[in-house]
């Protein structure tokens, strides 16, 4: 099932649509990634295809080595597939030149990491601000937006705090605010609750749920079935292929 990759502008309503009213924001077609371990090829992804609609809250689960992290790095344009395509908003990002990758990353993708990855010497405000620096947004606009996002994640009174002065859950909320700063098409979260306690986990999951209800597309990679169960759709990976998809067509 190959479609025409060069056709990227405004071809809504083509054969890829599932149900009326929701457009696929992400389309993955026959994605393969083969790593070479010495001379032995090891397939990490072995023909993965699925669509994600706008506003969907999706989780990808599976054991270690099932290929879920590889899949995530392909979607985030951090790594290139051996074969196959990834389309975001009908743009085939897997065909993008290396020089275009940073622009795609900052405009289409927002990353949330397991270990938050906030800059330790920056305040919460500055940590959100930095994501917008590379887009050339003027300073006052950046400040305004950062304040708005931090207020939204419930940290309006913590904007001057450094990561060391925040709890794990608060740090992850700052990271989510940062990921949303450039209004990405997709929020990619890699084990977002992997480093926090169960109580905090609920806060994070509820926050993500709320965002998805507002129309934000979210993909979460997790080990934690308690987190996966709260998402709209679960894709289960095994040995580089999709072994289960609760919402897929």
């Amino acid at each position: 099932m190959n479609n025409n990759p060069g056709n990227k502008s405004g071809n809504y309503g083509n054969n890829e649509n599932h149900d009326a009213g929701s457009e696929p924001v992400l389309r993955i077609r026959d994605l393969r990634k083969i790593y070479m371990q010495g001379k032995i090829p090891v397939p990490a992804l072995d023909g993965v295809s699925f669509d994600v609609n706008k506003g969907e809250f999706l989780s990808i689960v599976g054991p270690s080595g099932s290929g879920k992290s590889t899949l995530l790095s392909m979607i985030g344009l951090l790594d290139r597939p051996t074969e196959g395509s990834v389309f975001i908003d009908d743009v085939e990002i897997t065909k993008a030149k290396e020089s275009e990758a940073p622009r795609i990353r900052r405009e289409k993708i927002g990353f949330v990491f397991q270990h938050f990855n906030l800059l330790s010497t920056f305040t919460a405000m500055e940590n959100v601000d930095i994501a917008m620096r590379f887009t050339g947004t003027p300073k006052n606009k950046r400040k305004e937006r950062a304040l708005e996002l931090l207020t939204m994640v419930g940290l309006g009174d913590r904007i001057k705090h450094k990561p060391s002065e925040l709890s794990g859950g608060q740090q992850q909320r700052v990271a989510i605010a940062r990921a949303l700063a450039n209004e990405p098409a997709i929020l990619l979260a890699d084990e977002p609750t992997g480093a926090v306690d169960t109580k905090t986990r609920e806060v994070i999951v509820n926050l993500l749920k709320g965002l998805s209800e507002k129309g934000q597309t979210i993909i979460v990679v997790t080990h934690d079935m308690d987190v996966a169960r709260q998402t709209d759709r679960i894709i289960t990976m095994r040995d580089g292929t999709i072994s289960g998809d609760t919402g897929g067509s």
Partner: peptide, 11 residues
């Protein structure tokens, strides 16, 4: 991290 956030090589 800065690269993941979309920083370019020139930045």
């Amino acid at each position: 991290l800065l690269k993941a956030l979309g920083a370019e090589r020139k930045n």
